[in-house]
Amino acid sequence: MGMTTKKRKSQSSAKSFLICGDEELVQEYGALFSQSEADVYIWHNRKPQLPKRKNFIYTRTLSRVPKKIIAAFELSNLSYERKIGNIIKIENHCAKESLIISSSVTQTVTALTAHLQYPHRIIGLGAFPSLLQNDLVELCRGPFTQNDALKTVGDIFFDFKKEVSLVDDRVGMVMPRILCCLINEATFALQEEVASTEGIDTAMKLGTNYPQGPVEWGEKIGFDHVLSIMDALYFDTGEERYRPSPLLRKLAAGADFASRFLP
């Protein structure tokens, strides 16, 4: 299932990218693209804080974006309506050769495909806050995704020194699913007063060598993002094991000030 990336020059003459979606992800992917020379159009409602770069073009409307771009990164996990709205607008605006790389952790690519006229060019992306600081990105294909499209995405990430792994088209993909289930379980434990926030984080780092404690990690990711995955998994499977804890729901509601009311 592994997909290794090989060095290959981009075939496309279009040199631009588009980034839009959840603020945290636009920020992270924007930071990634600050290493690139390509024009990067950042389509936003609220201007994200990014390093100053000449190749960044901020826009509130798609009309300023060239029709022919290499790829649009659609990075919404939190709102289905916004995601579908973005995808339809991108589809209507961009040439049919332009790829649509859409975060597919809360929605399958298959579900997104249903909204597209040209579904050969959509690729699912495991876009989830905090994961881009590491070396691997998960991708998945929809029912009509072309191999060339997948290859191009692999090359884009290869240029950023990222490996890719092709996984099946399932909500949560691999890492976001495992990570959010851990964080959810940690919030259940917190809620049941098994230990303090600090105790849980310390225990998981020292007892199992986790790179970060699950509660501090959740705070860094944003509990609203964690909840979006758990809700998606729970909806997808209807299984008790994916039920978000009431504390997680509360932390998600106050994600911006979660540290104030973490137990």
């Binding site: 994961l131 590491n134 070396d135 691999v174 890492m175 790179p211 970060q212």
Partner: peptide, 8 residues
């Protein structure tokens, strides 16, 4: 591989 390289 994913857990190590994507999750750290």
């Amino acid at each position: 591989r994913i857990v190590k390289k994507s999750g750290g």
